[in-house]
Simulated scan of single mutants.
Amino acid sequence: MPVKVLIVDDSGFFRHRIADLLSSDRRIEVIGSASNGIEAVEKVKQLKPDVVTMDVEMPQMNGIEAVRIIMRENPTHVLMLSSLTHEGARVTLDALDAGAVDFLSKDMRAWMDKNDSLKTQLCDKVVEISRFRASSRRGLFAGRPGSEAATGTTMVFRPQQREKAVPLAAGKATSRPAPAASVAPRGTNAPVSAPAPAHAVARPLRRPRVNCDLMVIGSSTGGPAALQQILTQLPANFPYPILLVQHMPGTFTSVFAQRLNQQCAIEVREARDGDQIKPGLALLAPGGHQMILDGRRSSRVRVLPGDERLTYKPSVDVTYGSSAKSHGSRVLALILTGMGADGCEGAKMLKRCGATVWAQNKESSTIFGMPQAVINAGLADEILDLQEIGPILSRMGAR
């Protein structure tokens, strides 16, 4: 059965262009279009698409509000089309908060280009998103009215504005913030207790033994939600430096780092060339660039221009490989949800050095591609549910 797609965009040019690209793929069937959010909500009800491509700025009702209503009334996978601007990045992250699965940049030059690069990217994203309906009902759609897994919590990116933790005096423990899913709304005193999601692992929390001087996390589709869930559970005095590689354009990584920094007790920021790694600091690789450890000074990162020969900029493989050379067996690498196999070659280098590799499990992944590649290659020391990772790392930090 082909993937049924509804196209939502106020631009006639983009509606036709998206339809042409999608219709050229036998795996996909375009079943309708809408020019604003109100039409989109109604057509989702009528046509029941597998995937919706959604513009952000539209008359009458914008894409973010449309996503919120769709996810509440008729949960459906939504792929946002977003401009490559600072404001575009902000509203795209708002859309992920509202329930969208992923996004694709809306660069006019790329959409006018006649080569197959954009077509392949768009069609592959749509097909991959549609394939994970079963796991998404237990994660992305969990807890939404009318969903089959209404007993769970959502795994969408839900920013919680949070005061930065104040470091305590040396020798004193720093209390870790509650996970984002259990934070009470500001201005209220009522405790909020989120139920465990349907895919939560019903076993005592593991505490794997890891020799670690550096933690490196790679992710793609579904990564913003996964990173938010993990990093908000780390205490301000987390004892390891963290490198983050998330597939995103440059404008998006700067905004994403700022959001994470507002949410987390640890410090999170976009990496700059020459930054020093240190405990309790997470450096996010800038989009369009590669982040490596300095070969001469392993305590500093280098931010280099993206190599056109590499598909991913930033690339998990590149940062993993650099970490293997600089820190060897003292690296803890996490590979999280995402399309493709980026990270697998780097994980091989890490394992040859004796490093530890953890992979996110299928049940909690939005897209299982990247973790699956590492697991199938026999490189994963642990296969963990997303709900487990933050608490395990928090316990490690408490040692």
Rank of each mutant, 00 (worst) to 15 (best):
N36F: 07
I69P: 00
D9Y: 05
K45M: 12
S33Q: 12
L47R: 07
L104G: 04
R68P: 06
D107P: 01
S83G: 12
V67P: 01
E73A: 12
V56G: 00
A110L: 15
D97L: 03
G63T: 03
D94R: 07
V101G: 01
S11K: 10
L81P: 07
L47F: 14
A34H: 08
T120P: 04
S82Q: 04
P59R: 08
D10L: 11
V8F: 07
T53D: 06
D102Q: 06
D10S: 12
A98G: 04
R72Q: 13
A98Q: 04
R15T: 06
D94S: 11
G99E: 01
I64Q: 03
I18Y: 04
F14T: 07
S24W: 03
A100Q: 03
E29I: 06
L22D: 03
E39M: 11
F14D: 09
V44D: 02
G37N: 06
D107L: 08
N36L: 06
Q46N: 10
D25L: 07
V41H: 01
D116K: 14
T85F: 02
P49R: 02
E39N: 05
M112Q: 15
S82F: 11
T92Q: 02
I69Q: 15
K43F: 14
A40P: 07
L104R: 04
N62I: 05
Q46L: 13
K106W: 01
P59L: 13
F14V: 07
F13M: 12
E29V: 08
M71K: 00
I69C: 06
L81T: 06
T120R: 13
V78Q: 01
F14C: 09
R68M: 13
V8A: 07
S83V: 10
N74S: 13
D113R: 14
W111A: 06
V52G: 05
D25I: 04
T76L: 01
G63Y: 00
G99A: 10
M61A: 07
T76P: 05
S117W: 03
M71G: 08
